[in-house]
Simulated scan of single mutants.
Amino acid sequence: MIPTKANDLGGFLRSRRERLTPAEAGIGPGVTARRVPGLRREELAELAGVSTGCYTRLEQGVSASASDAVIDALAAALRLDPAEHEHLRVLAAPRRPARPRARRTRLRPSVRELLAAMPGTAAIVIDHRADVLAWNRLGHALLAGHVGFDTADAAVRPNIARLLFLDPHHRALYRDWEAKAQVTVAALHQAAARYRADPGLERLIGGLAVDSPEFARMWARRPVRTCSYYLRELEHPVVGRLTLANETVTLPDDDQQMGLFYARPGTPDADALALLVQSLDLAPMKEGVR
């Protein structure tokens, strides 16, 4: 189960409080032994300029929200980076009774056309749950050629997080698996904070926590990270080792992300990717890109 908003806010605050050492915060060793990692609640409250009672209520889930000023002060005291600061704002935002905005689970025709127009670039589109909504043929061959290409049926479409943690073939693709896994868990943490009334997302996270001890361990750390560009170190079963640039583009208004994988021209990585393209029958598929 995904924690409630109050408890999730408290859990995130506690994880960052325990991460920050007294020395990093400019606090002396004191005369009594510490029984908790990181800062004490009263120490963090003093650094942030809020009362210990106010902070304790937030961390214990008694209070489910806080003002922007308090959140900003806590973020500064905890030395949060911009992505963590924004995540804290989302967790502390007051609940609203309005229905959540509808989210697309299918692609716009223009996005399908864009995928088909990039035969030399591996491309994939996922939603906020990491479900694969579509990929072009090269994207499918690069990332998961061992699973079906069709993503039209929501009940059976691949999910990148499940593949990453539970599918040994997909896991073996990433020489930098640990880094990729941490980014994926961070994205799911941020999605869980934004979309609280999503039973599908809750089932995904709960199932992964049960089926993968590694996922459960990473989830407990509450990672938060925002980055749209990576260099991916891959070991492909057909073309071998290659390093590809990975750009992530958010599609406006759709709660979807497009991942693009490409190589710099004139490099051995470009040659390897071109070899993978050649291995495909690039004649247009009758069913097109789904």
Rank of each mutant, 00 (worst) to 15 (best):
N136H: 05
E59H: 02
I126D: 04
V90S: 03
R57H: 15
L78P: 10
H85C: 15
R264C: 06
Q257V: 07
A134M: 08
A181S: 05
L201T: 01
P29G: 11
S279F: 06
A45R: 10
A283D: 13
A48L: 01
Y262Q: 07
G49R: 02
V90C: 07
E247Y: 00
P265G: 12
Q256P: 00
H85G: 09
L188Q: 07
R194D: 09
Q190C: 11
T4D: 15
A152R: 15
V185T: 08
V36L: 03
V111Y: 13
A102V: 11
E18Q: 13
Q190T: 15
S51R: 09
H87R: 09
N7K: 13
Y262M: 13
T226L: 05
A154D: 14
P119I: 05
L251K: 06
A93W: 09
R232M: 14
K5R: 15
K180E: 08
A283N: 06
G288D: 08
G259H: 01
L142H: 02
T32A: 14
N136Q: 03
I205Y: 02
L91H: 05
G288H: 08
A270R: 13
M258I: 14
D176K: 13
P119H: 05
V147M: 10
T21S: 15
A181P: 00
P223W: 12
L114M: 15
M118Y: 09
A48H: 10
A245S: 03
T4C: 02
G10L: 04
